[in-house]
Design a protein around this nucleic acid. Structure first.
Length: 393
DNA sequence: TCTGGGGTCCTAGGACCC
DNA sequence: TCTGGGGTCCTAGGACCC
């Protein structure tokens, strides 16, 4: 199993772990007994490692297919339009699977269909039914109808927990039931999003193919602390740290922010202790991605919502109302926060930190960072550290 | 004792305009 | 007794995704 940050809960399970009945998102402490007995092995999440392997997979996909939309760290859509005239789609699917396995060493599944929602369902089937050989092609006559009938409603992309419960209560239990439902009725009773899902299940594309990732609308950094914080000072350190991280991302995205929000909260699950959550936001006079300014503003916001007497569990910093850093709206009457000097300084800061792995920081981020997250079962950085390369005998 | 992090889109309702 | 119609923008909160 793979654990979330802070080794808090389960976020990924092997087939064996699933067979043991371990549930997704369950808190780790509830299954620790299996580890103690030696029946289960856990890993802390290691996004540097996963990100690197993900990039390798995507690179292979881009070599094979002209149009790739990277959808998430472990999923991509390939646009195969026109390809059916040139080759057998099943065979193409197998080729994708084999190339990724040969070149990166990761097993993948392939689902082929006329819409994204159906392709996701096909992919689910490819994973679920081993007879498929890891490739399911719904463009073949009769396949789509058959799969819809045997797929539970929960497996449909866009149907979450809440909608699934509600749909089942009205007797819509399978993907086929949903596909046959009235679009307008579902649109009124649920949302236009679910109405679109119906059309997608019928083979009418409503979700476009987007090769270029859209510009982000918000950037945030939040963390659960390794242990509860009860004082203002370490909370301020954490907020500075998160503002610093988020500002880094902002610069990576070549964006500026014009609104900051800061939130803090106690454990929402704790029944026996006082609970508190709050958020403070402010608009900036002119947009910026200057770490110094953003850290200062974030702490000022924190100070307005901090209350003593609580055991804080988590805090976060959100930057929104983003604008491109090369063309933004400034204020005629306020000095620009984003000066040439700022840009130069931030650029220098980022390049040092990139090369020397976070060597430069602000003292206010805290020298000890006793609240920093725990990762007790970290796997080696096999592909991103010379010291931790895998050994081949 | 102990429960992640980072996003998106949609909707309802309020405030406002003429 | 009785008070219009058409619109925009913003925000919070919910649902969903990985």
């Amino acid at each position: 199993m793979v654990l979330s940050n802070n080794d808090g809960c389960i976020i990924s399970r092997s087939a064996e772990a699933k067979a043991m009945g371990l549930k997704m998102a369950a808190p780790y402490y509830q299954v620790r007994e299996y580890v103690d007995r030696g029946d289960l092995h856990v890993f802390s999440s290691n996004y540097a490692l996963y990100g690197d392997l993900s990039a390798r997979v995507m690179e292979v996909l881009e070599l094979i297919s002209p149009q790739v939309e990277v959808y998430s760290i472990d999923e991509a859509f390939l646009n195969l339009q026109g390809l059916e005239a040139l080759c057998e789609l099943d065979q193409f699917g197998m080729e994708v699977k084999e190339k990724v396995f040969d070149w990166v060493g990761l097993p993948v599944c392939v689902g082929i269909a006329p819409t994204k929602t159906l392709a996701k369902l096909a992919n689910y089937a490819a994973k679920r039914y081993s007879d498929s050989g890891g490739v399911v092609n719904l463009t073949k006559t009769g396949w789509c109808e058959r799969l819809l009938k045997i797929s539970p409603i929960e497996e449909v992309w866009g149907v979450g927990r809440k909608s699934a419960l509600k749909l089942r209560a009205e007797g819509i239990n399978t993907a086929a039931d949903l596909a046959m439902s009235d679009v307008e009725t579902i649109g009124n009773r649920y949302s236009v999003v679910l109405a679109r899902t119906i059309l997608e299940l019928r083979g009418i594309g409503c979700i476009g193919f987007e090769q270029e990732p859209a510009a982000k609308q918000q950037v945030l950094c939040s963390r659960t602390f390794s242990s509860r914080i009860t004082e203002l000072r370490p909370l301020q350190e954490a907020i500075r740290e998160y503002a610093f991280r988020a500002a880094e991302k902002l610069r990576q995205e070549e964006r500026l922010t014009s609104q900051i929000s800061v939130y803090i909260r106690t454990n929402p699950n704790a029944q026996s202790e006082p609970r508190y959550r709050n958020v403070a936001s402010c608009a900036l006079p002119t947009p910026t991605n200057d770490s110094r300014f953003l850290m200062k503003q974030a702490v000022a916001l924190l100070n307005t919502i901090y209350r003593s007497g609580y055991r804080y569990m988590k805090a976060g910093v959100v930057f929104s109302h983003l604008q491109p850093s090369d063309s933004y709206q400034s204020d005629l009457f306020a000095p620009d926060l984003q000066s040439t000097k700022t840009n130069k300084l931030m650029k220098t800061l980022d390049s040092i930190n990139q090369r020397f792995n976070g060597a430069v920081m602000f003292a206010g981020q805290g020298m000890e960072q006793t609240w920093a997250m725990q990762r007790n079962f970290l796997s080696p950085r096999y592909t991103s550290s010379w010291q931790e390369l895998p050994r081949v005998r």
